[in-house]
Simulated scan of single mutants.
Amino acid sequence: MPFFKRLKLADYLILAVLAGLIGYVVLTIEGKLNYEWRWELIPNYILRYREDQEVWFANLLLQGLIATIRISIYASVLALILGTILGIARTAENLTVRMLARTYLELLRNIPPVVIVFIFFFFLSQQLIDALNLNSWARGIARSENAAIWEFFFGDMRRFPGLVSGVIVLALFESAFVGEIVRAGIQSVPKGQREAARSIGMTRFQELRHIVLPQAFRKIVPPMANQFITLIKDSSIISLISIQELTYKTVELVASTRLIFEAWITTAAFYFVICFSLSMLFRRFERRN
């Protein structure tokens, strides 16, 4: 047990205080709020057995967790693409390009994400969905024979337009932070290397591709990993526009069963497990590099 061997007396005291605090909160909820814990019901809302078909299926909380993972992955990829473009634009030689990129970054970084979500949803999202005719396309896919393949990647295709809205608004918001991380990475590369690249006839694109970006991305792995974990937590915000991810499903569960503390504690545990696991994974990746 190497982990417990590393613990000292102070660590045990901290663990004891935390255990006492948790016990106090539980007793307070039971006593003052007269709350009856019903933890035995929670597993049924994660996985449920359907007796008529003799199969297990994902219930509310697991459905929301899967949706959160999907949205986080797609939004992270899009935010990385947009953020890289913005970071490169922030270091461009053209003043207009730099100012446009900075305006976008400063605007999104200094407006609360909830406001951004509502502005995008009510003023841009529906127009984009109508312009691309996503509603009728998604309904057609839902009725097709290949619907299972699409549902594996995107979930219920009838809710695909909502998924698109959630992914885009998250990516737009997070790309502002990714852009600043990329800019800092690019500017950390010594100017002498860029000047040497130009002296041997490299174009700006070749300089970025072969010299600057490979070094920059190695340096920005830690803050980029942290931003990806932040994006997972920020994904709960899009529940406000009825995107059926984990937080939205938890609200539904609480409203229908009154399992207030059990549902929210379980949801918090899901977020913690995902974010902590990614943190450990990225830490190992950093050590190898």
Rank of each mutant, 00 (worst) to 15 (best):
Q227K: 08
A148N: 02
M157Q: 12
A184D: 09
A131R: 12
H210L: 09
D156E: 14
S235E: 04
D234E: 08
L172A: 07
A196K: 15
G185E: 14
S242F: 09
E252G: 00
V221G: 07
I149H: 02
I229D: 06
I241M: 10
L163Y: 15
F173A: 04
R158W: 13
Q215T: 11
I220H: 02
P190E: 07
G166E: 10
W264G: 01
F153P: 04
N226Q: 03
S236A: 14
R209S: 11
I243V: 15
D156M: 07
F228P: 00
E195H: 05
I141W: 12
T230Y: 06
T247S: 09
S199L: 05
F205Q: 13
R258P: 00
F228Y: 03
V167E: 03
L240V: 11
S235T: 03
I200R: 15
S199K: 09
G162V: 06
L132V: 01
A171I: 00
A197T: 09
R218T: 03
F173R: 07
A197I: 12
I243S: 03
V251M: 05
F261Y: 14
N226G: 13
I241V: 14
K249W: 05
A142K: 07
V178R: 10
T250S: 15
G179S: 13
G192E: 05
W150G: 03
F261R: 01
I168N: 14
P222R: 08
P214L: 06
L231R: 05
S256P: 00
K219P: 01
I186S: 04
S236E: 03
I232N: 03
V167F: 11
I200E: 04
E145S: 15
V164N: 11
A263C: 07
S165D: 14
V164Q: 14
A255E: 15
P190C: 09
